[in-house]
Amino acid sequence: MASQAPVVQTKDLTIRFGGNVAVNAVNLTVESFTLKAIIGPNGAGKTTLFNLLSGQYKPTSGSIMFKGREVTDLGAADRTRLGVGRSFQLTNIFPSLSVLENVRLALQSKARVGMVFWRNYRSYSELEDRAYELLRQVLMEKRWAVEAKTLTHGEQRKLEIAILLALDPELLLLDEPTAGMSLEEVPAILELIQQIKAARNRTIMLVEHKFDMIMTVSDSIAVLKEGRLICDDSPEAVACNSEVLEAYLGGGVKNG
C-alpha cells in the first residue's frame, strides 16, 4: 500500500493570512519520480504552497500526506528528515561559510552526527569528500574553498541544489531555480534538473516562470490562481486550456 501512495497528497489545504486566503482548498497529488511544475500569476500562492509542503507554514485547515504519511503537524526540520528538500526563491545559503562547508553541513545533518560535541568535525573526513563529490556534480568543485557570498548568483543557485542533493531527499521543491539568473547560466540549471529527473529516484516539484522550460521538463503542470488550483494536467493539455491562458495573460497584464 505505502509504496503505491503518491509522494505528495494534499487535502483541502488552506492557509489564511488575516482576511487573505493565500492557498484555498487545494487538492494536489504528485506521483513518485515525476516532475510537476506549479505555475500561475504572481501572488497565486505558489511559494506559499511550497512553504506549506516544506513545513515553513502551518496550514489553517486541510492536511498534507507525504508518502502516505500524515505530516501536517510536523515542523520543517522533521520533514527534511523524512525526505522533503526545498530550495528557496531568494537564494538561501550560509553566506559567510565556505562553499564546501555549506554542503558538508547538509551531509552532517543527514549523517545524524550533528549532536556530537566531543569529536573534531574534521575527523568526519568522509563527509568532506562526499561534499566535494556533490560540488563536482553541479560543476562547482573549483570554487569549494571560497566564502559562499562571493559566488555569482547562478553559482549560488547551483550550490543550493548541491545542498539539496546532499540531503538526499525523495521530494525536491525547487522554487524558481533560475530566478534572477543571467541567460547564459540558465541552460546549466536546466540540464542539472533534467539529470536529476533522468535518474528517476526523486520526485521534483518546480515553480518556474519560464514557460518553454516548463513545457520541456514537466510530466504534469498544476496551475494556481488566487490560491485555487484551477487545472492540473499534462503539459499539452494545460497549454491549450483556455482558463489557464486567461489566468496567465490576465495575471501578466495586471502585473504590467
Binding site: A77, F88, I93, L97, E101, L105, A106, N120, R122, L167
Partner: peptide, 28 residues
C-alpha cells in the same frame, strides 16, 4: 573542542542563517 565539533559548526551555521539550518534538518 566543543566549538570545533559538529555541534560547533551547527551553531556557526545558525548564526549565519538560522532558517537555512532548520531547512537542513537541524533543530536549532
Amino acid at each position: 573542542r566543543f566549538v570545533r565539533s559538529p555541534v560547533g559548526r551547527v551553531l556557526k551555521s545558525v548564526r549565519d542563517n538560522e532558517q537555512r539550518s532548520t531547512a537542513l534538518g537541524y533543530k536549532t
